[in-house]
Design a binder for these strands. Structure first.
Length: 301
RNA sequence: GGUGCCAUAGCUCAGUAGGUAGAGCAACGGACUGAAAAUCCGUGUGUCCUUGGUUCGAUUCCGAGUGGCACCA
């Protein structure tokens, strides 16, 4: 008896390119559901600034991992990987194809390839290490890593505080080395992936970004940020569109300047996304208007 | 209309006592394993407005033109 193949259709691309609308049309065409892989649309309080799908869009196709968290919730990629795989297991009972879309490359990869088995951070330890790094400085903290995991010390970006901190943290938590846990091998999945990248000319993308930021302001992004003022120091709010308006609310820049900064930082974010996705050679790229061609390609599997 | 000042990177500007030039921002390229819309690394991309002259050599000095700004009419 022939096993029915299950496909995860992955739609990625830079912010503002039109992934949401594209994915919804695909979902309607294949009569299936959508998993979001957007690390900020998880938070239900952040709607305008994350370009959260509109109510009509959410009813046009069933979405998962949209607004499933509240701002104070602790979350991480590993949890997302587990939850997404569990959900896919369920969805593939009803559907041969399911759609995964979002701009968070790390989260997409976690679902498609998996990530290594590392311990979740211990908040108390992380806090302690943060303070230690602040006290002794980045360089000395790097030396600390050298004694714990000399192999990783050789390859890590010593200027990157997040990387150093995480590596030291894992070494202390496990009593071993970070290197020994970094297998970096793709895990087996019970489904095949079809990856679609959406992109267009840089100039057009930048126009889309500027237009979308203006629309966010018209829709009341400033009020949304004011409403979230008490959560300023939450990680979820360390996000383009929010941090720049906090700077305005703190009197550091004019509103006009803050909006310009949102546009600039969104462009940079889009560039980082493209850098991430470009190295994945299994992605086939389309213009956001090429829905029909994409469907044709998907159907050829 | 007259006088003065200015014209150099996408933008704002510095500079070269004559030997084809450099800052900030923007941009571009890259890394990425429980913070990832985060965090970090790298890279000047140039008819020095045009055109004559002086000079071995002009972005630089001189003349003219064009454009912009200011003041005076």
């Amino acid at each position: 008896m022939r096993k029915v193949l299950k496909y995860l259709i992955v739609v990625v691309g830079p912010t503002a390119i039109g992934k949401t609308a594209f994915a919804i049309k695909l979902a309607q065409h294949f009569n299936t559901e959508i998993l979001s892989a957007d690390s900020r649309q998880f938070y239900r309080e952040m709607r305008i600034g994350t370009a959260y799908p509109e109510p009509e869009e959410l009813t046009a196709a069933k979405h998962h991992f949209i607004g499933n968290l509240s701002i104070g919730d602790k979350y991480n990629v590993a949890r997302y990987e587990r939850e997404a795989l569990a959900l896919l297991d369920q969805l593939f009972k009803k559907h041969d194809k399911v759609i995964l879309t979002g701009g968070s490359g790390l989260y997409v990869d976690a679902v498609c390839k998996g990530i290594d088995d590392l311990p979740d951070p211990d908040p108390a330890l992380r806090n302690k290490l943060k303070q230690e790094m602040k006290r002794i400085g980045l360089r000395a903290f790097g030396e600390k890593l050298k004694t714990l995991d000399p192999e990783y010390y050789e390859v890590v970006d010593l200027n990157n505080p997040n990387r150093l901190l995480r590596a030291v943290e894992v070494c202390i938590q496990t009593g071993g080395t970070y290197t020994s846990l970094r297998k970096n091998v793709s895990k087996e999945r019970p489904f095949a992936t079809i990856k679609i990248g959406l992109n267009t000319e840089r100039e057009v993308l930048f126009e889309k970004i500027a237009g979308r930021v203006d629309r966010m302001m018209e829709k009341g992004l400033l009020d949304e940020v004011i409403g979230l003022r008490d959560y300023h120091d939450q990680n979820a709010l360390n996000t383009v569109g929010y941090k720049e308006l906090y700077a305005y609310l703190d009197g550091e820049v004019s509103l006009e300047r803050a909006v310009e900064n949102i546009k600039t930082n969104t462009r940079r974010y889009a560039k980082r996304q493209l850098t991430w996705f470009k190295r994945d050679e299994t992605i086939r790229w389309f213009e956001p208007e090429d829905l029909d061609r994409a469907i044709e390609w998907i159907s050829s599997f």
